[in-house]
Design a protein around this nucleic acid. Structure first.
Lengths: 150, 150
DNA sequence: GTATAAGCCTACTGACAAAGTAGGAATTGC
DNA sequence: GCAATTCCTACTTTGTCAGTAGGCTTATAC
């Protein structure tokens, strides 16, 4: 029942980006220093987030990352699914990564896992990055108008 | 976000025991065959469950295990805590295995983890072994009030 | 057109925990 | 005495997580 550091760092990075204007590119180095994460590791995570469509990257001097959607439209659940692979406690009740169980349909545990999953997903898919910013020490989220990035 | 096989096998074992009278000792071998679990591994799990007070063991010919409490009074949460160690997604929101986070109290994620934990615990601590028996193919639990929905 | 600051890409590695294996000792019933 | 059972402890295997490492590519400033 653990969340990986990937998800943790990924969410932190998004929270940090949400505290900056979408006009401003934030370099990975800055995020890494803020949260004391190894930069090379963070780079990998940011790459995944980019491939997942959460952020856009700008190469070169003065480059960096920015959110590609408003923070209100990014849920924790999406991010965790991307970085951790699955939210459900067992594969047999996962929608994104379903794996049948040997004892289906008579496995007494399926009900339990299904309820647990539903409870978890309910929270994670309903909490957005913006929600998380209000409780952090970061400056409040700057309201992002859809700046029509690619 | 995964439940270990220990918890899985442990819960299965308890479900199986719940399908038998408390007067009847069920040998580990029988449980192992039923659920196709390596018996030596199951033995370790049963030992932990015994130490945890969920079952009692009887050594010798005709011996085996039986529940030491009614199935309605054993929750999945207790069992998972015993076998897996912790339910919360992060140590910083665990009551049983609390571990402070480097960024407290300004870590924006704590709220999220706390909500996720509450949702999970709500399900796991409210589902009993008896609830799980009603959906399994095993004989119904003796004198069980059915409360499962959905 | 070169220096520099960024991201991009892929491979490798060390540590740890999960999942099992193994072997026998102790206990009990027939 | 023998067989069935639990009890106990140590060992092993395997896979994943959490990084490390090193170089490549792209963009900007001068």
């Amino acid at each position: 029942m653990n969340v990986s550091t990937k998800s943790e760092y990924g969410l932190r990075a998004l929270i940090y980006l949400a505290g900056h204007s979408a006009r401003e590119a934030v370099p990975a180095r800055e995020i890494a220093e803020k949260w004391r994460v190894p930069i090379k590791y963070l780079e990998q995570i940011l790459k995944t987030l980019r491939d997942g469509g959460f952020i856009t990257a700008q190469v070169g001097v003065g480059g960096g990352y920015r959110l590609s959607r408003p923070a209100t439209l990014i849920t924790a659940g999406e991010v965790i699914r991307l970085l951790d692979g699955r939210i459900a406690p067992m594969g047999c009740v996962s929608s994104s990564h379903y794996e049948p169980c040997e004892f289906e349909p008579d496995c007494g545990l399926k009900t339990l896992w299904a309820r647990a999953r539903a409870a978890l997903v309910g929270v994670l898919d309903q909490t957005t990055i913006a929600d998380l910013c209000t409780s952090a020490d970061r400056p409040q989220v700057i309201s992002l108008k859809s700046s029509s990035k690619r």
